[in-house]
Design a protein around this nucleic acid. Sequence first.
DNA 1: AATGAATGAGTCTTCATTCAT
DNA 2: TATGAATGAAGACTCATTCAT
Lengths: 214, 214, 214, 214
Amino acid sequence: MTDENHLLEEMLQEDANLTDKQKKILVAATEMFAEKGFAATSTNEIAKKAGVAEGTIFRHYKTKKDLLLSIVTPMMVKMLGPVIIKDLNKVLDKDFEYFEDFVWAMIKNRQEFLDKNLKVVQIFLQEIPFHHELREQFIEHIGKKVVSRIIQIVEHYQAKGQIVKLPATTVIRLTASTIMGYFAAKYIIDPKWNDDEEIDQMIHFLKKGLIPDE
Amino acid sequence: MTDENHLLEEMLQEDANLTDKQKKILVAATEMFAEKGFAATSTNEIAKKAGVAEGTIFRHYKTKKDLLLSIVTPMMVKMLGPVIIKDLNKVLDKDFEYFEDFVWAMIKNRQEFLDKNLKVVQIFLQEIPFHHELREQFIEHIGKKVVSRIIQIVEHYQAKGQIVKLPATTVIRLTASTIMGYFAAKYIIDPKWNDDEEIDQMIHFLKKGLIPDE
Amino acid sequence: MTDENHLLEEMLQEDANLTDKQKKILVAATEMFAEKGFAATSTNEIAKKAGVAEGTIFRHYKTKKDLLLSIVTPMMVKMLGPVIIKDLNKVLDKDFEYFEDFVWAMIKNRQEFLDKNLKVVQIFLQEIPFHHELREQFIEHIGKKVVSRIIQIVEHYQAKGQIVKLPATTVIRLTASTIMGYFAAKYIIDPKWNDDEEIDQMIHFLKKGLIPDE
Amino acid sequence: MTDENHLLEEMLQEDANLTDKQKKILVAATEMFAEKGFAATSTNEIAKKAGVAEGTIFRHYKTKKDLLLSIVTPMMVKMLGPVIIKDLNKVLDKDFEYFEDFVWAMIKNRQEFLDKNLKVVQIFLQEIPFHHELREQFIEHIGKKVVSRIIQIVEHYQAKGQIVKLPATTVIRLTASTIMGYFAAKYIIDPKWNDDEEIDQMIHFLKKGLIPDE
DNA sequence: AATGAATGAGTCTTCATTCAT
DNA sequence: TATGAATGAAGACTCATTCAT
């Protein structure tokens, strides 16, 4: 049982609607889907690992795919978290006067999210090419909202003259690529590795790269 | 039959060692593995799509996994291509006086590679989490060689004072993230989309971000 | 459904641990293995004959070979039966004063065993050349015990001066060959044939053949 | 390549009608059928072991079963050998005055036959339960002739007052069981083991056991 | 709510056999 | 005569799912 799972468990325990067996099923399925992939994991294996009867899985989740969605969907909803903020500009002005402060907070926040949801995010990334529901759910319920919110933010800092006046989507792409590249390296090399200097260098790179021309 | 497959076919035709049926099997398997994933594709489906008997697959590839590796391994080898250059520094000095020229050439070259090998690269990325052979093969035969070569290149431009003196691996990560982020966006949104202005902006961003401090 | 199978069924019914389907599978498999041999019998055929789904076989027996062993192993254990007697010499003195009495009892007892287990013994004999587990199981758990016990018995009658003082193993071989030759003839010609006169002649032959010289 | 196979090969070489490849096929098939059984041996394995293409087998033998019969049938014919003697009684009187001499000669002759044909005899015994052609061929062409001839012989010695006047088939059964029991023990324990004393004891046993009563 | 035996379609793979070369 | 690629039926075994208990 790894660190991430302790956190997963905590989250499950918060949800009063879940029976004990149900939680065990979700934990076992998460573990296996992450390790072997959805298609290569059998319900039999999940049942054994969860210590329940195979029938019990299907009492709670109509199909195997249902089980997958029950794992991935709530995580997607939680992805929304940090951008659902009312009166955004006020927050930005007060808490993050500079773009780099905002980026730094974003990185820290997503880092925490990833630490808590590593396995589920992994499943999400691994399975998204094969399940259009996942893709649509993500675009419709998450992607659009997040993007439109972040566009606002970028334009906020552009208006303040802090960053270059490229199209907001381009700025987002450049920033997101840099951050996600850092996370990818981190989780591939060593998920526990945590290097604030590395983050500082990255932010410095972003700041310089996005500085207005002239 | 899409564009990419025409190219795949061309490549297959060059290989005189492959029977006609074998080529059909490879084309069909590539198509299906990319679309549904390795584990969710049945050999029966592949046989039908290839217009051969199921037994024929196993005459040429001992197992289904063998078939996967027969598709992915040659592509990995071809990934080495652009970095196997003798007398590298001479090439750099003559052809790419500035770091930005090198990056631009790199992008164009990888773009071409991706256009030709899109499906196989897709399979590779989708399956790498589940097949340690793939991971090991990649690291051992490709990863190490490519990285060590690119480290040389980065240090070459650092020595010339063109880019910041961060650790070479950090420079590589920042650059690669930016480029791969661009490719990811491009292939998710529209594989045919080809925007040289976007590339110029990206290179400009990289140049500014990596400029030596002071 | 033949006579022997009625007896097989009886035995199965005694075993409370077996489900109804499991019994049907064992009966069907026994029938087919005896008739066509293990390798030439398909699990599909067994399932059909047993009136169960093919998957049901594999729920109870992990592999086809497992099924074979589940049929043959219990029979081997029952072969031990007649020689596991405490205080053997007392029994011999009281019940079988003469070697010929002992042989006669042995023949009758084994006859009964064969009548009850004909098919399984047949499978055992047919498959023993191809399955080393069978061979090893037989030698280790049955062969050694039986032989060492029978050596005692032979030496008992040799000590009483009733039979010739050849090596015990030689005496056993000569006796066993004669008896098994009789059984072989009986079951090849007509399993139901039961000729007490033939047995008497055989015992007379053995008695004369093994009489001490001088 | 064992001793027996050298002999098998010799026999094959005598047969001018067999091509080189055909001989290789027969040798390989004999080896494998003996070891794994007919049903569990694939034509692919045979082809590989023989160093020929799979198609070549089917050019010479219409079916796999054909191949089996081509191995076993000639051996059956050779079993007839020692009993196809004209003017039998003359031979018996001259060469084998006593029943025990005849039995001794028989044992030696069959021993030789077995040494030369061990693998094929093994195949024959292993496969006879599953192939009625084998059974019928054996009974019709071999069994009947051999039995009727040996009945004559037994009656010859009974007429001379040397052996007990039981039915000839009973005498044959008792004698054959004893001899075959010896062979069985010999080949199971060690095919090379050759103990003339053991044979003498066996013949002594038979002589005593079959001595006329009174 | 939970079980686990039962299912039969489906899995990957092997088979004996054919046939164009 | 010999080959070996090709076949498709059949092989052992696994799967997600159902249902009586």
